[in-house]
Simulated scan of single mutants.
Amino acid sequence: MISIKGLTKTFTTSNNRITAVDDLTLDIKDGEIFGVIGYSGAGKSTFVRLLNRLEEPSAGQVIINDQDITALNSNQLRLTRQEIGMIFQHFNLLWSRTVTDNIAFPLEISGVPKQEREERVQELINLVGLNGRENAYPSQLSGGQKQRVGIARALANRPKVLLCDEATSALDPETTNAILDLLVDINAKLGLTIILITHEMHVIRKISNQVAVMEEGKIVEQGDVLDVFLRPEQPVTKKFVKQIMGSNGDDGAEELVNTYDSGKIVRLHFIGDTTNQALISQMARSFNIDINILQGKITQMQQGAYGTLFVQMDGEKAEIDRAITYITDETSVEVEVVRNVE
Rank of each mutant, 00 (worst) to 15 (best):
E118N: 15
N292Q: 13
P57G: 12
N135F: 14
E166V: 11
D314I: 11
Q145R: 06
G41N: 12
L163E: 07
I207H: 11
L183C: 04
K160C: 13
S142L: 05
G35S: 13
F310C: 06
S281H: 06
L127D: 13
V121M: 13
V228W: 00
K238G: 09
Q89W: 14
I219G: 01
E254Y: 10
A71L: 10
A104I: 12
L163P: 00
T308I: 10
A305I: 04
D101V: 07
I18M: 11
K218F: 14
E119T: 13
G304I: 12
I37V: 15
V333N: 04
A323D: 05
I84Y: 00
I271D: 01
S40P: 12
A152V: 08
R158F: 07
Q300P: 02
L130V: 14
R148L: 13
V203G: 08
M86N: 05
N52T: 03
L309C: 06
N65V: 07
T12V: 14
A323E: 01
P57Q: 09
A104S: 14
D30N: 13
R148F: 03
M313I: 14
V62M: 05
M214I: 04
I33A: 03
D185W: 06
G252W: 07
I151G: 10
G111E: 12
E200D: 15
T19P: 06
V62K: 04
I2E: 04
G41M: 07
N92K: 11
V213S: 07
N15F: 12
D22C: 08
M214F: 03
V21R: 00
D172C: 05
E216Q: 15
L54H: 07
Q282G: 01
R81Q: 03
N157V: 08
L182P: 02
R267K: 12
I179R: 01
I244A: 12
Q147F: 10
G246W: 13
S40Y: 09
V236R: 11
A154K: 00
F88T: 01
M214R: 06
